[in-house]
Design a protein around this nucleic acid. Structure first.
Lengths: 289, 289
DNA sequence: CTATAAATGTATTTTTATTACATTATCTTC
DNA sequence: GAAGATAATGTAATAAAAATACATTTATAG
């Protein structure tokens, strides 16, 4: 663990072996870390009621080369992690307070996912997508729109692709599948009975099944490859499903990987698609009152 | 625009009216911004081959109170924005390298949006949602799934809600609308002709139109309230539409705001919805081989 | 060209941070 | 529980860094 990344947490940690004077410094900083990053050593020493060298020693003990370096690291840890400490939405929140909280929660979910995804697995998934002759995206409920979004994204490739939310349709497609078909099943919980059965049907027909779902869930186990997300949510009544964003971004990653794999060969195809949209748009310059 | 948020971009901007000596300072900083945050003014002056006061003036011109403050702001913009400066996906990227790039681009889009959204506007939007008798979410293309996602989200409230992607259906609904109806139109470009016309039809019928779209776009002008997003993308062939994530999160924010506004009154309603889903799921403990 | 203004640099002062060393408190051992 | 040792803290001096005032140069307009 790098001490620079979480200086604030380090300061607040009760297990820290600070001496009396150092304790004072720590609380003075925690009282207003934001201000501290713009203070002089003299000001901080005064507000902590200790001498300046004590502050300096305190900084060095925490891994900084001196006070300025400490301020820098404090500012950085303030910028990254700190905001999340109390980001639960409360009942008395108003627009200015809950708006950043929700954005931060979403950002946090993406950071977690970014740091936990296994690139090797992504690589394998891309292999499967490239090798497939047909792709189906399945999702129900909240994951339905995600599947639909994936359809738009993967439409750029020459492989036929479709998204389905209807359970019966999903079931029929899975039962009628054949080798070379790829099913990408998206489910936050991985416990939707119909989707798990659909996965089994597809695999019985020797199609490939990839899921984006919860770790160690029935769906993950029923798939050939499972990208598992553990964003950990649904606990707070007010905080929304941040997992969709992680799922969407993951699909972006896969689509990008496929694009890169296919190389320049398909760029004309993309250009044609883009061109087909221009007539539906207002010109960038033109006007309407 | 806050100069603190994007110091690096500010430095690199070619339109900046820097004098000769200041130009030197800018390039010296850009050559190694990371090092600059830990340099003294003397060191930077030397490496830029200018005098120390020139550096100091340079800092003040860019909105800092002095050199230390400038370093702080530089460090902050380095912590947030910097990762993205060269995060364009390159043709020789592989899964381990492009995966974090794409996540970072998404995170960046959310950060930008978080910092640019006007909470007052959000407040007004929530007012409209709460006041409405019926809500329609419209989107086409990539924004279609966003509209659909919103439908799921807003379904929790007692107000009837539906999402539509079909242009004809959208048009008919708008034409047949009446006061109390709320149309939320999602469009990244704000230039889709059909959606703009739909917005006008709805307003002609005295319904309310809120759009989530590009600033100063025809759609924004045709709406009662417009939440504008300027994520700035679509330039890189490989990087995906990060704006959808911003749109989705924005809708999360609005939904949360409505939930908070309605208070405890509707919690039983939510509980009933949650309960209705349990029978479709595998039990958390139970198993299947 | 000259007058003027803008830009840059030099030298100085002020502020800030660090170091060396003295003092005080705390702990250990008999 | 007192003497010696050790750690913690503070005082005062020094060094480093930054900002200022002012001089010089360079560009610009008439």
């Amino acid at each position: 663990m790098t001490p620079s990344q979480n200086l604030l947490a380090e300061l607040a940690k009760p297990t820290q072996a600070f001496s009396k004077a150092e304790q004072k410094v720590a609380s003075a900083i925690l009282a207003n870390p934001e201000l501290t990053t713009r203070s002089s050593i003299a000001r901080l020493a005064q507000s902590a009621k200790v001498s300046e060298p004590t502050v300096n020693r305190f900084c060095k003990r925490l891994g900084a080369t001196g006070f300025p370096d400490f301020k820098l690291k404090l500012a950085l840890s303030l910028a990254s992690g700190a905001r999340f400490i109390n980001s639960a939405v409360a009942e008395d929140d108003t627009a200015p307070t809950f708006t950043p909280k929700i954005f931060n929660a979403s950002i946090h979910a993406l950071e977690i996912t970014r740091d936990s995804v296994d690139p090797k697995l992504i690589h394998h998934v891309i292999d499967e997508v490239v090798a497939s002759k047909r792709i189906y995206f399945f999702g129900q409920g909240n994951s339905g729109p995600v599947a639909l979004d994936a359809e738009f994204k993967f439409f750029r490739f020459n492989t036929p692709v479709s998204a389905h939310q209807d359970p019966l349709m999903q079931r029929m497609l899975a039962a009628a599948s054949k080798p070379g078909d790829l099913f990408v099943i998206i489910s936050y919980t991985g416990r939707t009975i119909e989707l798990v059965e659909t996965a089994r049907l597809a695999r019985d027909s020797l199609a490939t099944v990839i899921s984006i779902t919860a770790p160690a869930s029935p769906l993950a186990r029923a798939s050939d490859l499972a990208i598992t997300l553990d964003v950990g949510e649904d606990t707070d009544e007010y905080l929304p499903m941040t997992s969709r964003l992680a799922q969407l971004t993951l699909l972006d990653v896969i689509a990008t990987g496929v694009t890169l794999r296919q190389g320049q060969a398909h760029l004309p195809h993309l250009a044609r698609i883009k061109k087909s949209l221009t007539s539906t748009r207002f010109d960038n310059s033109e006007q309407d009152a």
